[in-house]
Design a protein around this nucleic acid. Structure first.
Length: 347
DNA sequence: AATTTAACCAACCGCCGAGCG
DNA sequence: GCGCTCGGCGGTTGGTTAAAT
């Protein structure tokens, strides 16, 4: 036969714990250790189920529990771990000393999850909510048909971040200038470019732009805004030249109070990263601003700068909720590959 | 000041794998 | 080997508090 039931549920108290019950449980565990949860309530003089005692201890009374607001670093860690582990709250909690799985789960559901949804990011996949943007049609037209000769080629994965960037740029272009969008779509078709070639072109252009940005910073000795650098792009830039409207989009960042903060510091990818995801010049959020509110529409929106960007993270002491919101968007999108190194630990 | 709505979070519920008898 | 419980986990509920009307 198996064990006898852990407790007879009849007559056992439920609901919030009183301070007296907390004291009894804490005193007993400090003297004897948790031991067997089944027999603990009786020995400790509690009218509770052992399971209830265990939950109260592990989630609330344990002396090593850190109470209070989550720090920015903790929040950052939760997001990165969640992108890898999903809803494995206990696994996430194991990497956040002093925090319980229950606490992390609550914080995720009440704060982080809502914030991601507001930013148009799917809290499950950590990818932009393409379903809200009608991007499938855009991708279908602009990418899958880019090279008719490669007719048997599989459609590109929607989770490919580079494709997502391109899709967002195309979405913005379609929104702001449908005529030009169709013109560029035709250009792409005529150029016989495959989706993978398109991605390579874009990456190559970005690298060249960043290199140019660094050179300008070094040569002039003064800070050159990404906006100025973008204006200086040579005419033969492949991808950007293919969709010249993109440069206009980037120039509009500043008027939106976002993106180009005039502080690239040789890390010109800041504006690039934040734009398409947070809804700046690329303005992925424009597709439906009622669903995806763009923090960039607020003048208070801040792109991480040297003053509040410390050791690769926003300084917790100077960040506002909006800043966290903005930073978390770019963090999710572009630091996941780095965090994948953690996978080794879980294998 | 009273009422309604939203946010928060502790606690419960139910499922599952491991292990006991 | 089987039946059962324990301990752990993730999802959900509902009471409390704060904010808005």
């Amino acid at each position: 036969m198996g064990r006898t039931p852990c407790c007879d549920k009849n007559g056992l108290k439920k609901g919030p714990w009183t301070t007296e019950e907390d004291h009894k449980l804490t005193s007993y565990i400090q003297l004897h250790g948790p031991g067997n949860w089944r027999t603990l309530p009786k020995n400790a003089g509690l009218q509770r189920c052992g399971k209830s005692c265990r939950l109260r201890w592990t989630n609330y009374l344990r002396p090593d529990i850190k109470r209070g607001r989550f720090t920015f670093e903790e929040e950052e860690t939760i997001i990165q771990l969640h992108s890898i582990l999903g809803n494995k709250w206990s696994a996430i909690a194991a990497r956040l000393p002093g925090r319980t799985d229950n606490e992390i789960k609550n914080y995720w559901n009440t704060h982080i999850r809502k914030r991601l949804l507001r930013n148009g990011i799917d809290p499950v996949t950590h990818a932009p909510r393409l379903d809200l943007l009608d991007l499938s049609a855009i991708l279908g037209n602009a990418l899958c048909h880019v090279n008719p000769a490669a007719g048997t080629q599989s459609p590109p994965s929607l989770l490919n971040p580079e494709l997502l960037r391109i899709a967002a740029a195309l979405a913005s272009l379609k929104q702001e200038n449908p005529e030009l969008y169709h013109q560029q779509q035709q250009n792409l078709t005529d150029s016989q470019t495959t989706p993978s070639q398109l991605i390579q072109l874009q990456q190559a252009d970005l690298e060249r732009f960043l290199e140019l940005n660094n050179n300008n910073d070094n040569n002039s000795g003064s800070q050159v805004s990404g906006q100025d650098n973008f204006a200086s792009l040579p005419n033969d830039f492949g991808f950007w030249n293919t969709i010249p409207e993109l440069s206009e989009n980037c120039r509009s960042f500043q008027s939106c109070g976002a993106g180009l903060s005039g502080n690239n510091n040789g890390n010109g990818s800041d504006w690039y990263q934040s734009s398409l995801i947070s809804g700046g010049g690329g303005n992925i959020g424009n597709a439906d601003s009622s669903v995806i509110s763009t923090p960039l529409s607020s003048p208070a929106q801040v792109t991480p700068t040297s003053s509040n960007f410390v050791n690769g993270s926003l300084s917790a002491s100077t960040t506002t909720e909006d800043e966290r919101e903005s930073y978390c968007s770019s963090l999710l999108k572009f630091e996941i590959p780095e965090s994948l190194e953690l996978l080794d630990d879980f294998m």
